[in-house]
Write a protein that binds this DNA or RNA. Structure first.
Lengths: 131, 131
DNA sequence: CTACTAGTTCAAGTTAACTTTAAGTCAAGG
DNA sequence: CCTTGACTTAAAGTTAACTTGAACTAGTAG
């Protein structure tokens, strides 16, 4: 597969694929002329990278999940702690969402006069979510 | 209140306060010599800004929520749609979290051999969460 | 009066994850 | 043989939200 086919199938632009290669996240299996040639397995790998990104891992963290030989080597402890982290984020966002829903339909003339909004404000001051 | 007092009470560094002022998010009420003087109400305003940030609003979006005279003027429709957006994000993150928890304790020798993990991978390929 | 401290400005630097640009190369079609 | 189009590289640019640095100043303690 050449880069444009990978781009198409993965949904990632070619520039991103080159960037990922440069970062060591993926590898082409060789060249045909100048052009990179990728194995079909690249797609699974890219899906894994996208998964990691979506879960909130940085590209550097993701890079650490691959052995030098290129196999995925995902530490279960890392997964657990990232899941815990996500769980915290979800809690914050949920509180925020509920507060926003409330504020959106609260009849108070100004949000500042609504006790629920006030509570939300105080919460917000304390918690800085990770993302 | 001078800037360091505001910094202390709000938990935001002075550099951030100056940056927010430059952006038009806050205003000092005057100067004493060189030094900015802030009214106590600045704290409520900063809490509102922090709330907005936590809810996923950009600083520019937050700036739009203030009238030129400096009063908060928060559009309920915007709140509603941001809440909806948050709700979507929460769904994605929840799926992700559950997948990670599963993967963390899944006994499959490699994650790739686990059907739940595979499902997670396919999901990831499709959904690009907003934040 | 002098030193010190806490503030000030303006410009430049930081970070992550890319994207864009300019200039070059190769394989294929006509 | 020449043009076209898809690819290549390396370097620079982008964005958001700040932070840092250098040079400067005003009020205060001694």
């Amino acid at each position: 597969m050449d880069i444009s086919e990978v781009a198409k199938k993965s949904g990632l632009p070619a520039s991103t694929l080159r960037y990922y290669e440069e970062k060591g996240l993926i590898r082409s299996i060789g060249r045909q002329g100048l052009k990179r040639v990728f194995p079909p397995s690249i797609l699974e790998r890219l899906a894994l990278i996208t998964l990691g990104r979506n879960a909130g891992f940085s590209l550097d963290e993701i890079a650490d999940m691959f052995t030098p030989e290129g196999k995925a080597d995902i530490d279960r402890v890392k997964l657990q702690s990232k899941a815990d982290e996500l769980n915290e984020t979800i809690k914050h966002l949920t509180a925020m969402r509920d507060g926003l829903y409330h504020a959106a339909k609260c009849p108070a003339p100004s949000h500042f006069e609504c006790p629920t909004f006030q509570k939300l404000l105080k919460r917000a001051a304390k918690t800085r979510p990770n993302k």
